[in-house]
Amino acid sequence: MLILSRPDGLYCQKGDFYIDPSRGVDRAVITHAHADHARRGSKHYLSSTASAPLLKRRLGRKISIQSLEYGVSVNIQGVKVSLHPAGHILGSSQVRLEYGGEIWVVSGDYKTCKDTTCTPFEPVACHTFISECTFGLPIFRWPSPEHEWQRILQWWQDNRDTDRTSVLKVYSLGKAQRVLQALKDVGSEILVHPSIMDLVPAYETQGIVFPPMQIADAKSVRKSKGKALVLTPTCNSMEAWMDEPESWQMMEISGWMQVRSPRRKRHLSCGFIVSDHADWDGLNQSIHATGASQVLLTHGDGILLMNWLKRKGLETRILKPDNTKKELGKN
């Protein structure tokens, strides 16, 4: 077992380091800068070159961080470690570990469909693949992103026609920049929440071009009322900025938006189907492309995917944070 699942994260005993630990540790390899993967408090961090500036923004300027280009390996106590593009957000990586001829790959979050703000996912050959499975149900099969960008533009236009401000609720890291990039040629009157703007320079240094945009605040939002597209990670701010709830409409952008059934909808807002995670086909293709003989699923309810992979003759288990204690006892 090159990697163990411990209560505080995936742990490589041979190299004595963690991957995306949930608390501060001595040495942490970070797949990407999302908050559920990158946490404060570790003594040393290792990440991809493109991820390092984002981690510094989020975890603090003073962290000790070593960055690696994709495909370049380092040796940590005899374990050969390299990072490979995961296609999830800027700088997101899969982590490849090799020791004594055995190869493990931890996928982190990944997707296989087009995203112009990051390096595309590359399958990495391995013996054991630890895959996320956020959307591990066969009902999740994404439309092409272009299809959804068109829908967003149409919606924005419809809102302008009826004098309403369009508000997109997006993660400030990754999704927001992906949307901005997709709208780069049509952008006029795009306002973004400061937390999104904060992360834009890290993208620009990677050569990614954005449409002209302004910081969203009470003044700018009111000024371009009825015309603007506002990107924000939270709706609280909009409520503070705009008095009449009728004057703006908010939509989410997420894979969950694919499910429309009324029962579900009662609890979810409406929106567009653009995800930074792999869909059912993406998961299956990626898993098979690694050629792995053992698959461990994490980050989602993977029971259906596990059964499906087993049917296809792949040895598959679910790696849940809940049963990590048991795992630990076993090993």
Partner: peptide
């Protein structure tokens, strides 16, 4: 799709709308 009945039922258990579940199981067509 090659997806067995248990996969259909398992998916439908998440959204409780069989006509929708079935439609979503076919590859996306825009």
């Amino acid at each position: 799709t090659g997806l067995p009945a248990e996969m259909i039922d398992g998916s439908n258990a998440k959204i409780h709308d069989l006509p929708e579940t079935l439609a979503l199981m076919l590859p996306w067509n825009g």
